[in-house]
């Protein structure tokens, strides 16, 4: 039994240091922050100028921002903090009248017969000198208006918020009832069109 030797223990004292070096290396080369952003879909570029498709004025919610970052909403000077309420008012399905978009009755899956906006789009126009910050604020307020309306609609129909709805419910509400209709189309240079 003399040859029953103990295996010599490995000295693990430096193990901690080695793993510390690895740890610091990872801290240096990786980035932590998750990216958040406003996700948008650009329209495809077409060579044909689409002058033929003139949308009725009452269906368009025109927001223009000039080079001094002043806001004009449907022909009136407004502050950016008013934009969300105005956009909500414009898209609201209960509002009828000449200044609101045309309504249409449609039979939608999961919801049934409902009144929806036939076409209602936001046209966000800016000058070349507009600051990006103001533009994003406007985008954010418009998106916020649509999100709030979706939430209200879903609470009324399904009893829960939009984000908690099933994929099918979200598809119907997100595509047919309240689409994110912010036109990123042909950028208009406000200063030029005035000439």
């Amino acid at each position: 039994m003399a040859n029953l030797k103990k295996t010599p223990q490995i000295n693990a004292a430096s193990m901690a240091d080695i793993s510390f070096i690895l740890f610091i290396f990872f801290l240096m080369v990786t980035t932590m922050g998750t990216d958040y952003g406003l996700i948008r879909q650009l329209p495809p570029m077409s060579d044909v100028p689409n002058e033929g498709t003139e949308i009725n004025k009452r269906n368009v919610f025109v927001v223009s921002i000039n080079q001094h970052n002043n806001l004009m909403v449907r022909g009136e000077y407004k502050d950016i903090s008013q934009l969300r309420e105005m956009a909500k008012d414009f898209f609201d399905l209960r509002n009828a009248g000449d200044e609101y978009p045309e309504k249409i009755q449609e039979d939608l899956p999961l919801i049934g017969l409902t009144t929806i906006n036939k076409t209602a789009v936001v046209s966000l126009q800016n000058d070349r000198g507009t600051s990006y910050k103001t533009y994003i604020q406007a985008q954010n307020e418009l998106a916020g208006a649509v999100h709030e309306l979706r939430d209200e609609f879903c609470l009324q129909k399904f009893g829960k918020k939009y984000d908690d709805c099933t994929q099918e419910q979200q598809d119907v509400v997100g595509k047919d009832v309240f689409p994110m209709a912010i036109s990123e189309a042909e950028p208009k240079d406000i200063s030029k069109t005035k000439k």
Partner: peptide, 14 residues
């Protein structure tokens, strides 16, 4: 981006 068909964009924000 529109010209090259990279249509999905994200305006990164805080």
């Amino acid at each position: 981006l529109r010209r090259c068909g990279a249509l999905r964009i994200s305006y990164t924000a805080r």
